[in-house]
Design a protein around this nucleic acid. Structure first.
Lengths: 160, 160
DNA sequence: GTTCATTTGCAATTTTGTTTCATTGGAGCA
DNA sequence: TGCTCCAATGAAACAAAATTGCAAATGAAC
């Protein structure tokens, strides 16, 4: 379902451009060009290529959840009963579809899934658990961690 | 250290605009205006205001970690020994400073911190644990979860 | 009903993004 | 060496978008 990565070769220019874009993608191409010693059109072509290659996945605004009344961030470790391919796929689909689930990872270790959830209140979380976990008979157990401080939040990748 | 939120009143226009921007912040203001029934300048002024108020925290490109050779995503639950305000602050600062740590949350529950880490290889992770956890005598223990599939990744917030 | 503050749309202006095109700098090869 | 071919570049022209100025509309307080 996701577009493949064709092992793109990124040179130093590309990496510097990415470093700028993942900090502020509204930076004018001319400014980027000055920073990396390239003309604006060159920068523009590289960005376009990296978008096509899937190196740049998306361009988004990051919103403060509190401003939208979504003030609680919760982590959940979910352990399932049956780990057949089919059951796992179904769980992935279900978790991915929930708007409250901001992030979902399928992991090894003492849990099977780790979820990052954003809700307005604990009551909403409680309702969500009923729908998502207690309402799913393949969920063996789940552990909840409530975030008191979002110390560092982002999707930045080290550019090496 | 973080700018406060002055309980900004967001109307329906604002929320619709945010919904668009957190999906694609390169959408032209004119297009946004058409979608929400507002002129482009009106949209522009609202966006500017929400940036100043801190509702919109940042505008970024999202990069595929694999493209940068950072192909392993790891979750870590960290439990500390002493939870004095000072010790916690120090841990926050230390975790926030590490480039490999993409996200860091201070949580309640059976752990104190939850980290999302991006590294090129398990060897790099092992080196990181030595530096961050074994090298810190306030870390009681930590549990590692390696992501096999990044099912859903993003920082989108439900717009209610 | 009047006033005041806010927000809007339109139009002009400025800035930015995009395309065109001639040129440069190699890589491969006779 | 001298040659062609290819990919990437920068300068300039061009198109599109963002931003600003301003008058009109809206709405709340009095």
């Amino acid at each position: 379902m996701r577009s493949p990565i064709h092992q793109p070769h990124l040179d130093d220019f590309d990496r510097k451009i990415l470093a700028i874009l993942q900090r502020d993608n509204m930076t004018p191409q001319r400014t980027i060009g000055d920073a990396v010693n390239l003309s604006a059109p060159a920068v523009q072509r590289r960005i376009k290529r990296m978008r096509e290659e899937g190196v740049i996945r998306a361009d988004v605004s990051i919103i403060e959840p509190q401003a939208l009344g979504q003030s609680i961030t919760i982590f959940v470790e979910v352990e399932v009963i049956s780990e057949t391919a089919e059951q796992i796929e179904q769980a992935k689909t279900e978790f991915a579809a929930a708007a409250e689930i901001q992030q979902c990872y399928y992991v090894t270790g003492e849990a099977d899934f780790i979820l990052v959830i954003i809700v307005p209140s604990m009551a909403d979380y409680e309702a969500l658990t009923r729908r998502l976990f207690f309402g799913n008979n393949n969920v063996k157990r789940f552990r909840t961690f409530v975030a008191m401080d979002r110390v560092k939040v982002g999707l930045g990748v080290p550019v090496g």
